[in-house]
């Protein structure tokens, strides 16, 4: 990645981090994302699993539900995703079915990452076109947000309130978030 490209991608990753910060304020696992087409942000999303009691309401779903309410699905063929944490297996498959152009993310997810952290849903054999992924953009910042959330949730629970709720809130633990053992090549593969 040349310096010019780096500046371009970091600009949008900063926007994704802003969404993750908003999630943190809303008591949600701090994962945020933006979808970008032609250098413009066309949609934003953050994790909403805690408030909806729905474990599938990830930032990518939330953002796409907004985008696709006004734009045709074909838009996504020219659209890139910037997300603070590697897309999970579910979101990785969804993005491929929709035909996303490329995915840029912050830190890897060793717990259920779908683009290299655990599985390779973006490139495995499939009836859908594969997409390139690029991880590690503002990785430390993404991890720091998850740590903050972890601390915040622990401090908030002086009495052992509903254990199951807490289990969901900390669905991604800071220790699960790091670069994969075999770091993929930094190029857009």
């Amino acid at each position: 990645m040349n310096p010019e490209e780096k500046v371009y991608h970091e600009r949008f990753m900063r926007e994704a981090i802003a969404m993750a910060e908003l999630a943190l304020k809303s008591d949600e696992t701090p994962v945020g994302c933006v979808f970008v087409k032609g250098g413009e942000v066309i949609g934003r999303g953050m994790n909403e699993t805690n408030r909806t009691l729905n474990g599938t309401r990830h930032a990518e779903f939330v953002a796409l539900a907004g985008i696709l309410s006004t734009m045709p699905i074909s838009t996504l063929k020219e659209t890139d995703l910037y997300v603070t944490v590697e897309p999970c297996v579910m979101c990785a498959s969804m993005l491929r079915q929709y035909g996303i152009r490329a995915v840029y993310f912050g830190c890897w997810n060793e717990r259920f990452g779908g683009t290299g952290g655990v599985l390779n849903i973006h490139s495995d054999p499939s009836v859908d076109k594969p997409y390139p992924v690029h991880g590690g953009i503002f990785r430390e910042e993404a991890i720091m947000l998850l740590r903050k959330f972890y601390v915040q949730e622990n401090e908030k629970a002086p009495e052992p309130k509903q254990k199951k709720t807490r289990e969901l809130k900390t669905e991604i633990l800071p220790m699960d978030i790091h670069a994969p053992k075999s770091t993929p090549s930094p190029s857009l593969v």
Binding site: G55, T56, C88, V89, M90, C91, S93, M94, Q97, F112, G114, I121, S126
Partner: peptide, 9 residues
């Protein structure tokens, strides 16, 4: 794959 993982989540 997406729905299988949704079931898992």
């Amino acid at each position: 794959v997406m729905c299988s993982m949704a079931i898992l989540h």
